[in-house]
Design a protein around this nucleic acid. Structure first.
Lengths: 345, 345
DNA sequence: TAGAGCCTGGACAACGTTGTCAGATGCAGG
DNA sequence: CCTGCATCTGACAACGTTGTCCAGGCTCTA
């Protein structure tokens, strides 16, 4: 017994193994395994003895070994951009819920919008042999995933499509949402409408820009370069961009903000501005309704995105025949006041 | 070769193993291991051959096997209450950052404030042999963790202390923060001050209630039962509670809200209220400054909580001698207007 | 040129679990 | 009392990796 203790304490602190449990219960190794996994073929009496030994030793099955043997880890990976972004909270939660319903754990990490870090994370997750991946891509080339997918790692992209590989993707209708949002401003009489968005290399940002351009073109309004600010994302630069398009001889009378972070910053700028300026933002955010005026937004359903993606993932894992598909969820315009302000020329 | 392919395709899809790589490169198994792990003792030429084989086969080391052999998983678990709660975003992000700095992955799950689910999650993480755990406890009895901790799983509790076991904990000074917040209202002339908070079985909620009582007592103000609402947490009930204490013959002139979700709901109620009512909330939240009036809050630094906890965790893991400790971080009163409103009697 | 020492590479066991298969046990029926 | 069958149990190999240890070939020196 002393010898056993000495042997095990080298590793994992001194965790008891099935062998230890078996020794204590006076049964064979496999019998312990059977009890732990609820397999049939163990007499109640034996089972009780084993349970007692497990209890006494504080045994906990080592899932690493189990995984090694079985080939399935019952865990999936989620790679997103920033855990602290409120948009990803509900998404991540939805994925977790579905994972839980399938008895899987969720491992997640943030790419911080850095393609290298995304790849590093994804490969680390693959090395852990996660059964599947939900990825909100930061990069635009995912060929590094090809061997993984071929090896059977189920993969679903969310919010933005994968680059240069064929894979499932679930996203919001950024183009249509932005187009409708801008059209909403136009319908309220605006012509000089600003657009502040993220780098166009990000798919959603590009799509929203395209929606903006389309709405303007549909209304026959030529867009001036000074109305558009692309690739600004940190608050200070968004602030500068907003102030720039609000000043000058022909300032914009309305702004379309490309995502929730931009929207919030623009709200701050407008709060200090002397003239009312209309605003429509992409993404809803908490308290948007409590501001003065309430902020009109193009809302996407983050939770639904996550749910849909996770469900598709597990359908893949359950062995359903699978051809990569692109699922686009509609957005919803929520009017709260800021988007209905008339132009203050 | 064909035989090898047949053998491996049974498991993990058909992932190549080091053996396969070795065969293809014409070297021994251990040599591949050396190359993969950057160990010395491999000629450049051999290394190149191995690298090529790895590339060609799309080999990726199986970390499950590695973990089994080495005893360390380089991953830590984070159990929190709700991923979608904005308070936990920065916390979780901070933990992830520290983990990353230590080369560890973060596995997380939400307890949904359910003690059973918390335990289930924690034990699942232990079965995965995470090296350490950061837990925001939902339950109040953590004796189930004793064997794990004894077996060497580093554990740090955050935001609330562990129940019935001795473990590290990092939390905000809920008592002092609430006391100061309420005292702030008293200093602005309020006497009938309401308190809306979570169930007192939650440590932070209890502490904040204690802070409220203490501030009132210090000012010699007897507290009436109708001013306090405990254990309400869903928006609808918070709304009812707020409306109740704002009506009647002697309504409260100020409200202290026990957490961010309560605060937001109370803001909504007050927005519809005819008389101005002062408000101080525990927890800061985005846009609190943009509301009319800005919401005065007792702010805790969620990121700092996470950082501190994670750092302590890794200090444990690095083998520093360790006695459980309780670290309390100060809160900060941020005045923005709502807490400075005079009583409207 | 022989011997010592270094460097590289590979055989083998072990990590803790599960699948396979065969042995042991108990019981009913002949 | 023996056979046959069903039930329960355990020995053993395997999962893919890493640590240990030794063999063989090389360089360097005397």
């Amino acid at each position: 017994m002393a010898e056993t203790a000495r042997r095990t304490e080298k590793r994992y602190g001194n965790r008891p193994t099935m062998k230890d449990v078996a020794a204590r219960a006076g049964v064979g190794l496999k019998t312990v395994s059977r009890v732990v996994n609820g397999e049939p073929g163990v007499t109640p009496d034996t089972e009780r003895r084993v349970q007692e030994a497990i209890e006494a030793l504080g045994f906990r099955r080592n899932d690493s070994a189990r995984v090694l043997r079985k080939g399935r880890t019952a865990s999936i990976g989620l790679v997103l951009e920033d855990l602290a972004d409120p948009f990803y909270g509900p998404l991540s939660r939805a994925v977790e819920e579905i994972a839980r319903a399938h008895g899987a754990l969720l491992i997640n990490g943030s790419s911080a919008e850095d393609p290298d870090r995304e790849q590093e994370l994804v490969l680390a997750l693959c090395a852990r042999r996660v059964d599947g991946l939900v990825v909100i891509p930061a990069g635009d080339d995912h060929r590094y995933l090809e061997p993984e997918i071929k090896a059977g790692v189920a993969t679903v992209f969310v919010d933005r499509p994968a680059g240069r590989i064929d894979a499932d993707v679930v996203l919001s209708d950024s183009f249509g949402g932005a187009r409708d949002g801008v059209a909403h401003l136009i319908a309220h009489g605006h012509r000089r409408i600003g657009f502040i968005g993220d780098m166009p290399r990000i798919h959603t940002a590009a799509e929203r820009l395209r929606g903006y351009r389309t709405a303007m073109a549909d209304a026959g309004i030529p867009v001036e370069d000074s109305w558009m600010s692309l690739g600004v994302t940190d608050p200070e630069r968004v602030r500068l961009a907003a102030e720039a398009m609000l000043s000058g001889p022909a300032p914009v009378t309305a702004v379309f903000a490309g995502n929730n972070r931009v929207t919030v910053t623009v709200v701050r700028v407008l709060a200090e501005h002397h003239r009312p300026v209309a605003l429509v933002g992409f993404d809803d955010f908490e308290l948007a309704d409590l501001l003065q005026p309430g902020v009109t937004v193009v809302a996407q359903d983050a939770a639904q995105l996550g749910r849909t993606a996770a469900e598709r993932l597990f359908r893949q894992l359950d062995g359903a025949p699978h051809t990569p598909e692109r699922i686009e969820l509609p957005t919803r315009l929520i009017t709260r006041g800021s988007g209905e302000l008339p132009p203050a020329d």
